[in-house]
Amino acid sequence: MNDKPVTLYRHMKDLPSTHLLGSGTAMCSGCGGLEALHEIYDIIGEKSLYVNAAGCMTLLSVYPFTPFRGSWLYTAMASAAAGAQGVRDALDILLEKKQMKADEDMQVVVLSGDGSAYGMGLSATSSAMERNLDFIYICYDNEGYGNTGQQYSGATPHAARTSTSKGSSGFRGFKKDLFSIWAAHKPTYVATVIGSEPVDLARKIEKAMQLKGPRLILALSPCPTGWDYDPQDSVEIGKLAVKTGIWPLKEYVDGKVRHTKLPKQRLSVDEYLKRQGRFNHLYQPDRNDKLINEIQIDVDDYWSEVVE
C-alpha cells in the first residue's frame, strides 16, 4: 500500500456538496441504494448513459420526469449488459465514422439491483465481460427482490427473513459471492462500496473512471422497507455492516484483491443484526445462538483469511 494513488477525495469535505442526480424520484425514503447512486453519479458525471435493468430503480424515471442530467435507457431484467453492449458499440461506430464528435461520447453504465445482477442478468453480464465491454456496472444490492416486496434472491444473507422465507430460521441459503464471480472473469476492476462510506466510494469510482473495460461497483444498499428498520438508521446500519466485517470494503485490480478499509476492532455481528427487523426472529422470543453463531463464524472465517 505504498503507491497510494493521487486522489481528489481524502476527506469528507473533498466530496461535492451539491449533487448532479436530480431529486424528486420515487425511491423509498431512506433508500441506501439511492444514497450510493447519487454519490456515484457525482463522480461519474453527466456525460453518461445509464442502462437500467428491471428493479427498484426502474422507477427513477417516470414519464415525464427524469433525475438524470445525462441519458438513460430502460431495458429489462435480463439484458441490461447487452443494452450497454449495443449502446457502446453504436457510439464506437459513430466515433470511428466521425459521425459523432468525440465530446458527445459518454460513459456507459449499467444500473441493476441484486435480483438482476446475481441472477437473471448474470448470463448477459458474464458475456459482456467475455467481450471486454467498456462499461461500469453498478449493482445496488439490497439483498432481495425489493421492488416486489423483498422476496429472497441470490443476494439474501443467511437467516434473513424475507417475504418468501418467513420461517423461524429465515433464509436457509447463503449470500452468493458476486465479487468473486466477477473477479473470476478477470475484468478490469471490481469493488464493493457502501453509501455510508462516501470517501471510500468516491475513490473507487474515481479509480474506475480512469480504467477501461468491465468494472463492477457492488454497493450494499441498506433498505428500510425490505430490511425493516427506521429510515433514519440507513447510514448507521451501513456503517455497522462495515464495522462488524459483514460488508468488507475491497477492490480487485490487476488480479489482486485489496481491502480498502480494515475494521480494526470488529464489532460483534449482533450490533448489525439486531437493528433490523429482518433478523428479529434471531432475538425474539429467545435468542437463537445457533444461527447468530453461524453468521459470526462466517464473518470470522472470512477475515481470518484476509492478510493485508
Partner: peptide
C-alpha cells in the same frame, strides 16, 4: 457481435438503433 442469447441480441440491436446506427 455475438451475444449470449437472442434476448440479449435484440436488446443490443435496439439499444444500438436508438443510439443512432
Amino acid at each position: 457481435v455475438t451475444l449470449e442469447s437472442e434476448h440479449s441480441m435484440i436488446t443490443a440491436a435496439a439499444a444500438a438503433a436508438v443510439t443512432g446506427v
